[in-house]
Nucleic acid binder design. Structure first.
Lengths: 211, 211
DNA sequence: TCAATATTGAACGGTCGCGTTTAATTGTAC
DNA sequence: GTACAATTAAACGCGACCGTTCAATATTGA
């Protein structure tokens, strides 16, 4: 195959325009929904002809898929638990809980989840892609943190994956649900949930002196 | 006002047909989504003329609202923690956790939640109605159970509302999320989550001998 | 029987938006 | 310059479907 280096003749497709289309599509799809978005409006927002959109993505669903893929790609950058804060295990858990909650309760994230969930019935692959790019990746990273803490003798955790789920779930509590259904969630409630999650988690998993 | 008993003259509206319309609408809306549902199809499914639909509900959104209302009404019947199972507090929590999880993870419920969440942006009142009919009602009932258990000396719970959220959240874990995004959830995982939730909950809140 | 309302079937106007076609233009490689 | 492909603007066919109107029929209370 000599096609690897060989360039195609003729005018190359404009990747800048392509990116602009994807971005405009993501905004429209995740703000207004799939059915309520029109390709013509997306093309206009991207400063591009409608035909160009069809040349690049072929279809409305194809464009939607590209927008989801792009958004998932952005998400993957946000799970670097590299800068581990120092401090007691209680303090570290609190910081992590706050960071996760802040990340997950951004309005854009709420809307994005709503849309992905709604479209998952028609296209199960979309839901899978989201789970892998977001929640499952997050769970794995946090599980690794817990295992490390256990090796340091701070925690005693029989099932780190389960414990990770428990902590994250408690931090979210019903705040997650309430936001998804449009109810306001106060800062106090969120703080209380995170503090409560840390307490319960430690009373179940902390080793001796760290309790 | 003498209008209370006074019947309107002329042919009365057919409440049987009205119910049939609402049921057909609910099926279509929660299966296919709001935008993808057509009033003509709903009318045909209900064995009714399109004009009748407009006479009863005026609008497509009006019909959607009626369908949501009806579905919420059905939901309210499902929260009777009356038949409290006997047994240790550990056994009772397990039974409750299993019942809640079974109720919440029914495919119809998953789809219903997806649709309501998607339509909540346009009509926040819809999300509020759902929260009040479902999650908040459930939380209140379970909080009452916890308070009762505390009065019986089985638990020591400083904040019953928070504890209720924590238990339910742990039972759901990520299974909730995974189902919403189309991933299969095994029976083993669910059982493990519930058992784990009971253990963690009791290690945090159980009094002396019940631990 | 009469008056008032509900229901039906059909048809219509209008809007919206997808996906396609065409002809002309612009950009890149050779 | 020439060949080739991407981009554009405009227009079109087409289907779906909302909401309305109208005439005819059915059902109730007085």
């Amino acid at each position: 195959m000599s096609t690897a280096i060989r360039k195609k003749p003729g005018r190359p497709s404009d990747q800048v325009k392509r990116a602009a289309i994807v971005e405009a599509a993501a905004r429209s799809f995740f703000d207004a929904g799939f059915a309520a978005s029109s390709i013509e409006q997306i093309a206009a927002d991207a400063g591009v002809s409608k035909v160009t959109v069809y040349n690049h993505f072929g279809d409305k669903r194809g464009l939607f898929g590209a927008a989801v893929e792009s958004e998932c790609e952005k998400m993957r950058g946000h799970f670097s638990l590299d800068e581990m804060p120092a401090g007691s295990i209680r303090e570290r858990l609190t910081v992590i809980g706050e960071a996760m909650f802040a990340f997950l309760s951004r309005p854009e994230m709420i809307q994005f989840e709503r849309r992905i969930a709604a479209e998952t019935e028609d296209e199960p692959a979309i839901g899978q892609a989201f789970l892998q790019a977001g929640p499952w990746r997050m769970k794995q990273a946090f599980s690794a943190f817990l295992i490390h803490a256990e090796q340091c003798g701070e925690l005693a955790i029989p099932d780190p994956a389960l414990a990770a789920e428990q902590f994250v779930s408690m931090c979210k509590g019903m705040g997650d649900l309430e936001q998804r259904f449009g109810a306001p969630v106060s800062q106090e409630d969120s703080a209380k949930r995170i503090a409560g999650a840390v307490e319960v988690f430690l009373s179940a998993y902390a080793k001796g002196r760290h309790r």
